[in-house]
Every structure is written in C-alpha cells, then in structure tokens.
Design a binder for these strands. Structure first.
Lengths: 333, 333
DNA sequence: TTGTAGGCGTTATCAG
DNA sequence: CTGATAACGCCTACAA
C-alpha cells in the first residue's frame, strides 16, 4: 500500500504538499495539485485513516448505543444514523445497553475507550445526572428519544404527549367515549408523557377520566395481555383500547381474539411506534408513527455540525408523531 | 488523558515495560508489573487505541456488511456478531449493501478503506468470482449465509435444502399431499436449495411433482400475494402452502383472508426464517427457524480465531434449520 | 527481565 | 505557495 511519502516522491513535492491537496483546506497551485493527483492515481494511493486519526486527534468514528441491535425500533434508528454518517465518510460503531444501568454504562465506556469523536445514545436506565456528568467529559454525547433539561442542545426527542393525544383524539373523533388506556412503565419519561396526552384528549372533549380504564404494564406483549385481561375483568365498559406501544397492542390483540372479541367491531385498538410488524398484525394495526429513522439521521446531522463543523440546515430537535390509519379502529356504533 | 509515557515515569520504568504489561505477551517481573499497574490506576490511564493500531498495524475493528440495518433478519445477525466481538474488545463497523451490486461493492470498499482487520459479509448481488478476487486482497473476508466453493474456510452457511425438506415433510406428516410451493427468486442460491428440499420431500414420499403447484416470486409480501393468487386461479387443488420465506407467507396470509380462506382449516401455511414478526401473524406462523444469530456469532468466532489467533473450539460452518410449530398448520382432513 | 531507539503514516507549525 | 520537521501514542526488534 502506497504511502503519502511515495506519492510525494513521484510528484516531486514534499509530504506536506500532498497532505494539503488531500485535505484541500490550504491553497495549492493548480499545477502541483495536478501532479500530486496524478501520482496518487498512479500509485492507487489510499490514505491510512488510522494514521490520519492519530495525527489529527480525530477517529472519524461515532459511537452508537442502543438497547438492542435486533428489534424493529432500533433498526430504524441505527439505519438513520448510519446512512447519514456514512455519506459523510464517518463510520459508526454500534453497541448495546439492554436497558440495564450497568450495561449501558459499560457500553458507553467501551465507546469512549474506542476514541469515538462523539457518541449517540438511546439510554433508558441511566440517570439524568449521570448523563450531565458524562457530557462534561471530552467526548460529546447526543441523546435520541430522550430529553434532559440541562442538555437542551444535545437531545433529539419526540413529542410523546402529542402522540398520546393524537391516538385518543382519533378514537374520540370516531365516536368512542369509553376508552381504555394501557400505559407503559411510569418511571419512563415517554410512557408518562403519552399518558398525559391521553388525559388531555379526554379533558378537551369533556370526557371524565376513569381510573379503572387506565392500567400500567411493561412495554411488551405480555403487558398487553395482562392489561386487556384486567380491563375485561373490571366492570367499566369500553369500546376502544389505546396501547402505549405496538408490542402491547399485539399482545392485547392476541388476548382479545382468544376471548372472541372481534376487532375492530367489538373493540378498536390503537398502538404507538409503528414498528415493522404493525402492518402484519391482524387486523392491520392503526398506530401513531414514531419517526425514529428521521430522529436517528437528525442526531447524525447534529454530530456533523457540532463536531465536524459541517454546515447543516434544517436542524430539528423535537419531532412530531403522526397517525397511521389502518384497520384496527372502527367507527363507534 | 494520560499517556504511556507518564505511566512509565510514575512507575519509574521504561515505556517498553509499560507496553509489555499491557499486552501481557512478554514476561515482566511481579514487582515491576505491580508498580506499573498501580501507576496506571493512579493516572486513570486508558491506552489510545488509535496509536496502538498504527503501531501494531491492527485496527481491532471488524467490518460488517448487511443488506439492510433495519429488517428483522439482519438484526439477529448483527446482534450475534456484535455480542461476540465486543466481548473480545473488538469493535464492529456496520454498513449496508441494499442487495445491489454497486452498493455492495461500495460498502466493501468503505470497510476496507477504514482499515478493518477483517470483514464479514452478507452479500447477495455480488458474484462468486468477485468474492474470490476480493479474498486475495489484504483484508480477510468471511461470508454469512452464502457458500462459495473456492472459499470453503470463509463461509458460514445454512443447509437450505434441508430446511426446504423439513417444511414440506412436516406438512406431509400432517396428511397433506397437495402442497403448493411458493419459491424465491431462482437466481439466489438459498431459494434454489429450498425448492430442491421441497422436491426431495415429495419424492421421498412418492408424491409426484406438479409444476402447476410451484410459483416463483420475490422474497416479499407482494410475492406472497401474487403467488397465492396464481395458485387459486389455477385448477390444481391444494391444502397447504409452503413459502420460501416469512414475508411471502405474510403476504399470502393476507390474501387468503381477503378471499375468505380460513387458516389453518382451509389452508395450512408454513414459512421460512422465523423472523420476529412470525409469532405476531394471525394465525401465528409455523415456520423453519434460520439460526442467523448463531451464524453471526460463529462468523465472529472465525475471525477471532483466524485473524487474532484466539483459541476457539466448536467452530461450525454449516448450520441446520429446525421446525418451529405454531398455529398456521393443521392436520389434513 | 528491562531499556533504547526507530518507526507506523499523517497532520500541523514554522520558516522561507 | 511550498518545504522541513516535530509531534501523535504506542509497538517491537535489538541491546544490555
């Protein structure tokens, strides 16, 4: 593999000049530039990115921590980050945190030790304080789908309250008034906000909040099953069910079918996130789209702008969810 | 950030000695080692991985090329690779090929230019010849879910023929004899092998092959829809449908339902791959498990063994699929 | 067992 | 605009 030195010899210029034409920041005369370019071509020269990193104190790699590498939600997110960053010639190192505090911290350590120029995090278990502390370190951090008050410029988040509102509002517009709400764990910020949105929709439509129609469970299939079982055993009637995410919705739908509830005739169901399997469910799940892919690419743009000083327009830090209508919701009759 | 030099000063030894205790390959006396370790701890020393790479000509990073970063299938695969490699302190750079020749080559170039110590590929569009040529380069390559005759030691693959056989055989054992087969694109090796397995199952059970009950389509939902429409319009009767992958199965199931075919009563359906949404389908899809996660981790082990000379036992290059029974197949009556 | 010194391929800071 | 030359932080013969 040819080195910059060989190129300089062939082009009869100094090392420095070759470096200059590569980086293009300093002016080089037309002729010498051409000579250098020719020499590079002839030798099929490729810069050694590691040597560049060492000399420039830049690794050109960005760390990305997600809860799980598999899983539909994170797939979209990673995809957004990678596409954007690769186009800029940067590379992405992906690792996992499994939503557990120790593992998240461990993953962050790993990424920092790899000399990443910045790290993009989707962390759930770690505290705000920890993140604030972390942000004082040498490696810049960016957060996806989480808002930390002290780090307003480093967060990309979703308006979960609005999402919760939209879901319930859409049901009300279809004539439903007795709406059960299956909430996510109330120590997670997004789960809290979604529930608030639901309550706001009820209030704005003058529907009293019935605590018996609210149940908290895990963001998983099993949570959906437990939730619907709870509501069905209760004495409060309801014609629609809002689930705080699609996995819960999937579980609830399975349970509903096993109990001979026809959807959407007997029960309308709406989810949240619009993960890949949502359109595969039966009936196809109406849900609130969570633009994770865009949020991922936006986090990447933020890094490009802050860390690499690349011009970026249209930086957007708060995203809005939108309704995806499919077949799991019917007009109330 | 402390450097090796500062550590050496504090421990009153030379640079070389510090380097030795880090790498642990050369013998160092107990006392000096302790002194060095103490100094490292005191300074909170972290080796600069980039400098290590430059000096040792190792980047400690492995490139991974998949068709799509999102997508259930690849999620499992990436996850397998990452887990194994991270445990070994290596890092993974992931990029995409989108099943298009140009993009796959481009992605490979990208990875090589990043100085990866090895690259693990899941490529579909690129030719065997290209891969053989590529393997002669400086960067070792490993293939997942593909078998190239000339590179027997660098391939991790699935016995697709056996998978095809298992699927059809399981149906036959349930009493089905008129079995439609929805094949994948017959320029893809796995699609071809799966179909062969199907035919072998028929032969071994003395069932004549009816060409009217074989249809080729894309490995997607749409392919499933087209396939079932074709079979339904044909005059050949059938009680079961084998799909060459789960996405096709999903499409076929949607189409079946729209045409009032009750599953599994009127029609048994079986898929292939066991992707995440398979258990979410209605009815829950019976399918052939494709152990991509294990294959990913095995590819990583192969790299650890070949490239980093780490002892590895239980290297396995050919994997066997297995049947996952759920609710989409019924006894023929 | 330990130390010395040269080098890995670039970038960046000076002069010229 | 161009050329020396010193970093960058670590590894690894070679010597001692």
């Amino acid at each position: 593999m040819a080195t910059i030195y060989e190129v300089s010899e062939l082009a009869k210029v100094s090392l420095a000049t070759v470096s200059r034409v590569m980086n293009g920041n300093t002016r080089v005369s037309e002729k010498t530039r051409d000579r250098v370019l020719c020499a590079m071509k002839e030798l099929d020269y490729r810069p050694n990115s590691i040597a560049q990193s060492l000399a420039s104190n830049r690794s050109n790699c960005i760390g990305l921590l997600v809860s799980e590498i598999h899983g539909p939600f994170f797939g979209q997110m990673m995809s957004g980050v990678e596409t954007e960053l690769r186009a800029a010639g940067k590379h992405v190192i992906i690792t996992t945190g499994h939503s557990e505090e120790d593992k998240e911290k461990d993953g962050i350590e790993f990424l920092i030790s790899r000399n990443c120029d910045a790290i993009i995090l989707h962390v759930e278990a770690v505290s705000d304080e920890y993140l604030v502390e972390l942000s004082k370190g040498k490696t810049p951090i960016y957060l996806i789908s989480r808002h930390v008050g002290e780090l307003p410029d480093n967060c990309i988040s979703l308006d979960n309250e609005l999402g919760g509102f939209i879901a319930t509002q859409s049901l009300i517009e279809k004539g439903h008034r007795n709406i059960a709400y299956l909430a996510g764990p109330q120590y997670k910020a997004d789960a809290i906000a979604r529930l608030q949105g639901h309550k706001r929709a009820l209030s704005e439509n003058n529907i009293a909040i019935n605590e018996k129609l609210i149940f908290e469970a895990e963001f998983k299939e099993q949570g959906g099953i437990e939730g619907l079982r709870y509501f069905l055993q209760g004495k409060a009637a309801f014609s629609a069910l809002v689930c705080a995410n699609d996995e819960m919705a999937s579980g609830a739908m399975t349970y509903a079918r096993e109990h001979n509830l026809h959807m959407p005739k007997d029960l309308s169901v709406i989810g949240f996130d619009n993960v890949v399997f949502a359109p595969h469910l039966y009936p196809k799940l109406t849900t609130v789209d969570n633009p994770v892919n865009k949020m991922g690419s936006m986090a990447a743009k933020l890094v490009l702008k802050d860390v690499y000083q690349q011009e970026q327009h249209d930086i957007q830090q708060l995203f809005e969810p939108s309704l995806i209508m499919r077949d799991s919701v019917a007009e109330f009759s």
